[in-house]
Every structure is written in C-alpha cells, then in structure tokens.
Amino acid sequence: MAGMTPTPKGNGTGYRSLVGPLLLPTWVVIGIFLVLPVALMAVYSFLTKEFRGGVIWDFTLAAYDQFFLNRGLFGDEPPTLEWTYITIFWRSIWQAALATLICLIVGFPTAWFIATRPPKARAIWLFLVTIPYWVNLLIRTVSLKFLIRENGPLNESLMSIGLITDPLPLVNTNLAVQLGLFYSYLPFMVLPIYAAVERYNFALSEAAADLYASRWVTLREIVLPVVKPGIIAGCILVFVPSLGAFLAPDLLGGAKTFMIGSLIDEQFRGSQGNWPFGAAAAMILMTLVLIVLMIYARAQTKGEAR
C-alpha cells in the first residue's frame, strides 16, 4: 500500500501552473458564444417588438404580459389569465413526461437484458442500441414519418394481413408525436440504466432470493433502489430534450400537438415573428429545465451523502 498521506492527483505532472492558459479557450468560447447570448436573450425578452422581426430598445414587460395575461382584443379589458401559451407549455410538459415514462417502461427491461448478457453478446447489443443514437435525428424522424404515414408501409402491411380495413390516421396525432419522442430519445434512457445495472452487484439479488423474496419483489425492493441513480439520469436525459423538442412535433404532429419548440421557432420566422415574445418563451423553457436539473442535482448530492 502506498502512503495514505493526501497526495493530490496530478501533483508532479506540472499542469497545476498551466490551469489558467489551458482553460482560457473554454472560458472565452463558451462565455462569449453561449453565456453572453443567453444573457442577451434575457434582455431581449424585456424589449419591445418590431413588426418586421427584430426589436426596439425600449424596456417593457409586454412579452411576459402577452404570455400570461389576456387583456382582450384591444388590450383595454381587465386582465385575466391567458391560457393559450400556458396550455402549450402544459401540453409539452405532459408529452415529455409521458415520453419519459414510456421510454422507462421499455428502456429498463432492455437495459437490464443487455447488461445481463455474456460480455460478447453484451457488446453486440450495446452496439446495436447505440447506432440509432448516432444517426441524424432529422433522418430518423423523417424515416418514422415515412413508415407510419397514411399510405405508408406500416398501414399497408397491417391492411394486407387484415388487421385493419382502413389506414390508421397516425400522422398529425399525439400518438405520432409520442412515438417520435420515444424513438428519438430511447437510447438516452437505455445507456445510463445499462451503466447502472452493469455495476449492480447481483449477489444482492441472490441474497434477497435466499431470504425468500420473489423475483419481482427483489426487483422492487432491491434492484430499483440500487440502480435509481441510473434511472433518474435516464429520465432527465429523455425529459429535457423532449420538452424543447422541435423536429418530432413539427414533422409528425399537427396544430393540436403544437409544442414549445414550435412556438418559439415561429416567433423568429419572417415578419410574423415576435422576438421579445420568443425570447421570453425561451427563458421560461430554460427556467423549467433548470428547475428539473436542480432537483436532479439535489437528489444526486443527497444520494452521495448517504
């Protein structure tokens, strides 16, 4: 055994004195091209809109007012809560949560199954699950649309085997958006859970079985609590991008499935746009995501403290 004296890692390799110069590019690039823009976006959300897109530098709460309050057609009625945008946000949260749940229900057994294969088979399964993640999201979404569209291969084959008589109207429904989100982010659920199950000590399950627990009781009482960090990580990784998703709702959904991503996108398109309002909606989305991440971080640190 080496001495237990606290020898900080990296000592004697000489990078301690170079920390500043080594990190400078990171600070500059992310600072200028991400932190500063987000700060600027926050400022924009308080500016006045210009009608041909863009802004006038007059500070106002108009964007947030428009988001949350209804003052009637001419803006002279007493303000009531405006439901249009809140509904869109609520629908997005709900869709993202549902997609997360479905990914979890399918992803956990898959991850478990992969992690319990012998090493060689495991590598192949993992490889197969990872490949779609590397394939362009747009292409995957377009492929899905092609598959499930009215005259698409899915409906054709279902009709040819006589399961249905008329094509299922899948595209432009909530179901299609769900399917799109599920399909887009499923690998994000499988990979962290896989990593957690791979580290799981199966002797714990054996101990539980030895102490008369059934398979499913063991799953609920022992396995799930132990691999929980992986499950939570997977849920975050699916929920966060689903919330701001643009491609799946835009390509697979219709007017009824309008989500935050499309709402924001619309504000920056041509002369119909409203930049301050788009910035405000983006700010609200970011706040939602940060709240989720903070809850996650707190859960993580609590888990470590145990």
């Binding site: 991400l34 932190v35 966060v240 701001g244 788009g278 995501v289």
Partner: peptide, 18 residues
C-alpha cells in the same frame, strides 16, 4: 457542460439574437 444542459432551441434563439 452548459451546452448539454440548455435546451437546443434556447441555444438557437440566444445565438441568433447575439
């Protein structure tokens, strides 16, 4: 890790504005 945490659409809006 900030680029991973901020939703893509937000990064997009922020960059355009910037």
């Amino acid at each position: 890790n900030l680029p991973l945490m901020v939703p893509e659409i937000v990064v997009a809006v922020a960059c355009l504005i910037f």
